[in-house]
């Protein structure tokens, strides 16, 4: 493992305003993601996990606080820099997959490549890109579904396609917001297995939000979110697992 921290948040504050009421979601949250490990983030619904995820992915901006990718501050970087950050340096997976319904599985996997490159350079490298996309699909075990539309795939298959898409641009960090939240336990565990495999074989860092303690149990580090802050127990990563494991 590397000592360097891949992603860190310092003193993040974020609150939403609804009808003149201020709803504080994050209150001075600190987070460090170590490279090469699977970090799980658990917390009650509404505790602000997704909000944190969006801030980390620079899809939204914190009210206060700083987010660093490596040593570079990312939360107030320029738009093109943040677009590049999302496109190349991290991969994002959602609970509801968010595949583009008009595109086939392989085209969805190609999407980040198309977005990141100019039409001309994509056109020149389209063969390699396609090969890589197919390799990614193969990696997640979905090659036989390459030409299927999302509407023709099951939830687990769609999530695999989404993972393949997230891996397309070879990111260093994968942000996953409840990747198994919409799947049954077994499929969820399959997805988890895929993610841990990626972590072990490629050294990919993963920050994963989950409700499911059995999923969290598979992580190297587990953080719990409460009152807009993290309760960290790095010494015993799987401290929650023993009580709440679902009987198999």
């Amino acid at each position: 493992m590397n000592d360097e921290i891949i992603l860190s948040a310092r003193g993040l504050h974020k609150s939403f305003h609804k009808d003149r009421n201020e709803v504080p979601v994050l209150r001075g949250l600190d987070l460090e993601v170590t490279p090469g490990v699977v970090t799980a983030l658990v917390g009650r619904s509404g505790s602000g996990k997704s909000t944190l995820m969006h801030l980390l992915a620079s899809l939204d901006q914190p009210d206060r606080g700083e987010i660093y990718f490596g040593n570079e501050r990312i939360d107030n970087a320029s738009r093109p820099r943040r677009d590049f950050y999302r496109n190349r340096e991290i991969g994002i997976i959602f609970q509801f997959y968010h595949l583009l319904p008009e595109l086939s599985a392989v085209e969805n996997v190609l999407a980040p490549m198309m977005i990141g490159q100019s039409a001309w350079s994509y056109f020149r490298h389209r063969k390699e890109a396609r090969l890589r996309a197919e390799a990614m699909l193969d990696r997640v075990g979905l090659l036989h579904r390459a030409t299927h539309r999302p509407a023709e795939m099951s939830g687990g298959e769609m999530q695999r396609a989404a993972i393949a898409r997230a891996l397309m641009t070879d990111p260093r960090l994968l942000l996953a917001d409840e990747p198994t939240g919409n799947l049954d336990t077994e499929t969820g565990l399959d997805i988890l297995k895929l993610l841990t495999e990626l972590n072990q074989l490629d050294g990919l860092s993963i920050l994963m939000i989950t409700h499911d303690d059995s999923i969290a149990a598979g992580a190297d580090v587990c953080h719990r979110m409460q009152d807009g802050q993290l309760q960290i127990n790095p010494a015993q990563p799987n401290f929650q697992v023993a009580d709440n494991r679902i009987p198999a």
Binding site: D83, R86, R88
Partner: peptide, 16 residues
Amino acid sequence: TRDIGTLKALGASGKG
């Protein structure tokens, strides 16, 4: 709307 959000999450710019 959701697809637009997805595209932006994948790094598409507003101009794109």
